[in-house]
């Protein structure tokens, strides 16, 4: 909603377009899973999911028409999640780097 006064009312067409896009992306994500892209499979899947989430947040959840603090709050949750994931994985990904010493 805008900072003051009546909130923005999106036209019906916007919602239907978003719905169509979400459906198309669902078909895409299922389809692409059956091709062998190696390590890219997971990246593609996550990217498509992020795009879907982004348009849900933007249009269904009206963040596009919201105050900056709402943008910030919505972003904070996701950014914090990514940081938590990255730092935890920093441990697991580097565990094998240092070989165990041979018996001494």
């Amino acid at each position: 909603m805008s900072e003051h006064g009546q909130p923005h009312i999106a036209p019906l067409k916007t919602y239907l377009n978003v719905f169509a896009a979400l459906m198309a992306l669902t078909v895409l994500t299922v389809g692409v899973a059956y091709f062998d892209l190696g390590a890219m499979n997971i990246l593609v899947a996550v990217t498509i999911a992020c795009i879907k989430a982004y348009i849900v947040i933007l249009y269904f959840m009206h963040v596009k028409y919201s105050a900056r603090i709402i943008w910030l709050t919505a972003a904070a949750g996701f950014i914090w999640f990514v940081l938590m994931f990255a730092l935890t994985l920093a441990d697991y990904a580097t565990r094998g780097w240092l070989p165990f010493p041979e018996a001494w």
């Binding site: 709050t73 919505a74 914090w80 999640f81 994931f85």
Partner: peptide
């Protein structure tokens, strides 16, 4: 909802 993201976030991690 930000709180919820982190709640499910723990599971996803």
């Amino acid at each position: 909802l930000a709180q919820e993201v982190m709640f499910f976030g723990g599971l996803f991690v």
